[in-house]
């Protein structure tokens, strides 16, 4: 062993060139930000921006007090909204289950053929927002609740299937070996070794998606797919600000309610 003074006293995580490169990267980032800010605000009319607080105060004052009597005609669309979310989630989950098993590497019947198709279904469903699905469906099948339910379902497939197939791929393989070793058939292996392991993820994901779908179904009415969004659209079009504020309040209440329900469900099932 050397004397303690023979060991170097200097230690740096990065070498000189690395430090220089990092400094240049930060400089470049700051310059880019400044440039982008300039580009973005090229067309901003600063007169309107400075006026924004006044406008906000004006609309707020017109919104207050909410027109409470309007609530009578809101109960039905609110109920519709919850139904769109719930039925849409149920339908989406039912369709997502087989897609998830076909997409997971360890349960798919064919890596080359079936898995890419399942992954494509997931990507297609996820890449299109439920509002756009609703727009398409209203055009195809006319306005109404059904279009909303199917829009929510189509958007949910990808979300639920993706989280589920990732859970399937992460299961403990020795439990699968143990069930395989008993002479079980492939379906029995799924039932005993795979399903119990993904159950918590499945329940959690379903409840989470229902929670998201309550929010998403509140805006579907904007494109004619039923629910409270329809009333919001009407009220905005007629500049009935007191009604708009009441709708905001009822949407907020529904979302808070759904959060409470999903928290309770999660506790009960997992």
């Amino acid at each position: 062993m050397l004397n303690i003074n023979d060991y170097p006293q200097q230690w740096e995580k990065h070498s000189r060139t690395q430090r220089l490169l990092r400094w240049l990267a930060w400089l470049w980032f700051v310059v880019l930000c400044a440039f982008c800010w300039q580009q973005m605000n090229h067309q901003t009319l600063w007169y309107f921006v400075t006026d924004a607080p006044n406008q906000l105060a004006d609309i707020s004052s017109r919104m207050w007090p909410p027109r409470w009597s309007y609530m009578e005609s809101l109960w039905q669309p609110l109920w519709d909204t919850i139904n769109i979310a719930t039925l849409g989630t149920a339908l989406g989950v039912v369709m997502a289950i087989p897609v998830a098993f076909l997409a997971a590497r360890n349960t798919t019947p064919s890596q080359l053929l079936v898995r890419p198709i399942a992954l494509f279904v997931i990507a297609a469903s996820r890449s299109i927002n439920s509002l756009i699905w609703a727009l398409l469906l209203v055009a195809i099948m006319g306005p109404g609740l059904l279009a909303g339910i199917i829009a929510i379902a189509l958007r949910s497939i990808g979300f639920v299937a993706k989280l589920m197939y990732e859970a399937i791929e992460e299961i403990n393989a020795t439990q699968v070996s143990a069930i395989t070793a008993t002479g079980a058939s492939p379906m029995q292996i799924l039932d005993y070794a795979v399903v119990p392991q993904i159950m918590p993820t499945f329940i959690g994901t379903t409840i989470f998606r229902w929670d998201i779908n309550i929010r998403e179904s509140t805006v579907l009415g904007l494109v004619g797919a039923g629910g409270i969004g329809l009333r919001l659209n009407e009220s905005l079009a007629t500049l009935a600000w007191p009604q708009v504020s009441l709708i905001f309040i009822s949407i907020l209440a529904t979302v808070v309610f759904s959060e409470w329900v999903s928290a309770r469900c999660r506790k009960a099932f997992i």
Partner: peptide, 10 residues
């Protein structure tokens, strides 16, 4: 099995 390999949630 070594780590039992039981189905924990059943």
């Amino acid at each position: 099995f070594q780590e039992y390999a039981l189905i924990e949630r059943l």
